[in-house]
């Protein structure tokens, strides 16, 4: 089987079977890419995760671009990205086309009434563990709280905030480095 087709099918499978998105995809990507295909090594995989998280966009898309590039250059990265996105694209398209009609159904509406508060809980619950895992410290917690309040209650654009925080941390990082050199 040609390498590009193998690449497409592998990422199609990853896109097809990773429910929940994000970190739920990590074990499957690891099994398919590192253990079965051996396209990248174990150590490279952890570096890939770090990069995929520090670069904008969905983690799964970032991971497919990286692995695709390693296996088949620019074409490879496009093929892998298509593989990851096509399954969810098709499924959502079907749901979007049908949901509009089914929304007025009382059973569907009752089902969603139960789901809505559950989704909010699933977003809020991992926050504490996440801030412990990222080890952000007291200053980091203050920054996180400020971002949360500004976005949720002051209507500040998250894109603008991200840009400001990125520039500010680069600046303070450079200043700190300079000061250390002078001492």
């Amino acid at each position: 089987m040609p390498q590009l087709l193998k690449l497409f099918l592998t990422f199609f499978k990853i896109g097809m079977f990773t429910l929940g998105g994000g970190y739920a995809m990590v074990p499957l990507i690891q099994r398919e890419i590192v253990e079965k295909r051996q396209w990248i090594e174990e150590k490279e995989f952890y570096e890939l995760l770090a990069m995929a998280q520090s670069s904008p966009g969905p983690v799964a898309v970032n991971a497919s671009v990286f692995v695709g590039y390693k296996v088949g250059g620019v074409t490879g990265s496009i093929v892998a990205t298509l593989g990851t996105t096509i399954p969810s694209f098709v499924i959502i398209l079907i749901i979007a086309a049908w949901l509009v009609d089914y929304r007025s159904n009382p059973y569907v509406e009752a089902f969603f009434k139960g789901i809505r508060p559950a989704v909010v809980a699933m977003i809020a619950a991992p926050l504490y563990a996440l801030s412990r895992a990222m080890n952000i410290g007291t200053a980091g917690l203050c920054l996180a709280a400020a971002v949360a309040l500004l976005v949720a209650f002051a209507g500040i654009s998250p894109a603008v905030l991200i840009a400001v925080v990125a520039c500010a941390s680069l600046l303070t990082g450079i200043l700190r480095q300079r000061r250390q050199k002078q001492v």
């Binding site: 520090s54 989704v119 909010v120 977003i123 809020a124 991992p126 926050l127 996440l130 801030s131 990222m134 952000i136 200053a139 980091g140 917690l141 920054l143 996180a144 709280a145 400020a146 971002v147 949360a148 309040l149 500004l150 976005v151 949720a152 209650f153 998250p158 905030l161 991200i162 925080v165 990125a166 500010a168 941390s169 680069l170 303070t172 990082g173 450079i174």
Partner: peptide, 23 residues
């Protein structure tokens, strides 16, 4: 890159908290 991401990490947690608050 490390410098930028050291600031973005708390911002990302803040964004998730904002998602929970607005919802």
């Amino acid at each position: 890159m490390e410098m930028v991401f050291s600031g973005l990490k708390p911002a990302i947690i803040g964004l998730i908290a904002a998602a929970a608050l607005t919802l």
